[in-house]
């Protein structure tokens, strides 16, 4: 692994970004790294824009990532990639879940949804990976495990195979959810 690494997860309230970052940061901790993770709980419970940020390395001070410093951004909802894009390093990885949650501002005509932005950015972003993690999770039998499908993809693209992720997942999840999430993890890894 690189010396210091910055991981930014962006999504919509209720999508499970916090669980994904919890599994990730515990994996890093078990491997002996210093880890900090920041999250912001906004007002209300669902539907708002949310982000969690993980910083990992030998010694970490700030829990928040600076602009242009994320090694990887994972957009749990498609357009959230755009909101955080200026945090990505020039050679950073962008994983986009090809899944849209249109805010009511779009339906009400207050704010347009950038349906085609990926076409325009596919040339500019060197390491862009787009797939529908919602569908992958749904096909496995539980749409809610979408966040762990994305975890699998993060582990693959950041090459974090030195950590025993199945055992971390087992530690972090209630037993009844472990089996489905193991499948989700592997499906994400094989994307």
């Amino acid at each position: 692994m690189k010396k210091n690494m910055n991981i930014l997860l962006a999504g919509v309230g209720g999508q499970g970004t916090i669980l994904t970052s919890k599994i990730l940061s515990n994996g890093f901790l078990q491997q002996g790294y210093d880890v900090k993770m920041a999250e912001i709980h906004g007002m209300a419970q669902r539907g708002g824009s949310v982000t969690t940020q993980i910083r990992v390395g030998d010694q970490i001070f700030s829990p928040v990532i600076e602009k242009g410093q994320a090694d990887i951004i994972v957009a749990f909802e498609k357009s959230e990639a755009l909101r955080w894009l200026d945090y990505l390093k020039p050679d950073g990885i962008l994983i986009v879940n090809d899944y849209m949650i249109e805010p009511f501002t779009v339906s009400l005509g207050i704010s347009p949804y950038p349906y085609t932005f990926l076409n325009e950015y596919s040339q500019k972003i060197k390491h862009l990976h787009v797939f529908n993690a919602f569908k992958t999770a749904q096909d496995l039998g539980n749409a809610k495990s979408m966040n762990v499908v994305l975890l699998g993809a993060i582990v693959k693209y950041l090459q974090l195979d030195m950590i025993d992720w199945p055992s971390v997942i087992q530690d972090q999840l209630p037993e009844k959810h472990v089996a489905i999430n193991m499948k989700a993890f592997h499906a994400g890894y094989q994307q």
């Binding site: 669902r46 824009s49 242009g68 909101r83 501002t105 950038p114 932005f117 325009e120």
Partner: peptide
């Protein structure tokens, strides 16, 4: 601070909302 990517497009406003 410098941004890596100049965004012409904007993410849609996503204020908190009644569920």
């Amino acid at each position: 601070s410098t941004s890596t990517y100049e965004n012409e497009l904007q993410a849609p406003l996503r204020p908190p909302v009644l569920c």
